[in-house]
């Protein structure tokens, strides 16, 4: 059994909140740069140029790339041989509080969905736990903006809808979102599981590098095909028309019930943020 102090978790979460908001992952940056080169539509190319300049300013000045510094989604992969000294949930929330305060990040969380009073410190975090073999603790912080979150959808398809139903639904979600989620977008798709597991998979898919395709060739092909189909829609950066509507499609799948085919589509904007570290 390995001991990890809850204070170290707080420090890690704090650092990750600040870094994730200013430093875009390398794969996302590379895709934006490639899109700048390959975009044939003038206005679209100009917009991509500003988007590129924006992440460069954010990095250089260590300021958030987007003012919507999101709700802090915190993913933990806890080795089953790890023991946390202290209150783990409280340690995570405290890390978010400190990171959003010190990093001058926007506080965008309300305490209740109906009374809507801002908590003023961006807590609570949305926490996702995963128990894995080993004695390490991997923490990923993904600030999630709601311009794109609001454009996400889930549908309980019928097994007879099959792969065509899945494709149609993904395209429908992107089409309906149009310019709203700040394209070029990254599309996270969860297929299978239960109603809630499909949504979780879709979010988890957004944590994967856009350079890594699904390990199953069937799903890897589906990722490639959907990216091509989405970019053929012509929505373009910010919806002004153009070739670059999505930077990547990441799909995660799991077992499901004989009667079901749940599909969730979680959309992320071009400021697709996540930073990880291991304790």
């Amino acid at each position: 059994m390995r001991e990890i102090n809850a204070l170290d978790v707080t420090a890690a979460v704090k650092r990750l909140c600040m870094e994730a908001n200013s430093y875009l992952p390398g794969d996302v940056k590379a895709r934006i740069c490639a899109a700048c080169e390959n975009e044939p539509w003038d206005l679209a190319r100009n917009i991509l140029g500003i988007i590129k300049e924006n992440f460069e300013i954010a990095e250089e000045k260590y300021v958030p790339a987007c003012q919507d510094t999101g709700v802090a989604c915190v993913f933990l992969e806890i080795g089953q041989d790890v023991h946390i000294n202290g209150d783990l949930n409280a340690a995570i929330h405290e890390g978010v509080r400190q990171g959003y305060d010190e990093g001058c990040l926007r506080k965008s969380v309300v305490r209740d969905p109906l009374d809507r009073v801002n908590t003023r410190d961006n807590t609570p975090a949305m926490i996702y736990y995963d128990i894995v073999p080993g004695d390490k603790l991997k923490i990923t912080v993904a600030p999630k903006g709601f311009g794109s979150e609001n454009m996400s959808q889930i549908k309980m398809l019928k097994p007879s809808d099959g792969i065509q139903g899945v494709k149609d639904f993904i395209l429908k979600v992107v089409e309906e979102a149009g310019p709203n989620p700040c394209p070029p977008i990254v599309v996270g798709v969860g297929i299978g599981g239960t109603f809630d597991k499909a949504a979780y998979l879709a979010k988890k898919a957004l944590m994967r590098s856009t350079d890594v395709r699904n390990a199953d060739p069937l799903y890897a092909d589906l990722e490639n095909e959907m990216l091509e189909k989405i970019n053929a829609l012509g929505i373009g950066p910010q919806g002004v028309g153009g070739k670059t509507t999505a930077l990547a499609v990441n799909i995660e799948q799991m077992a499901t019930h004989i009667a079901g085919l749940p599909v969730a589509v979680n959309i992320n904007c071009h400021v697709t943020r996540h930073q990880s570290l291991e304790l």
Partner: peptide, 11 residues
Amino acid sequence: GAIGGAGAYLS
């Protein structure tokens, strides 16, 4: 329309 997500640039 301003460019969504370009908050650092626009500021």
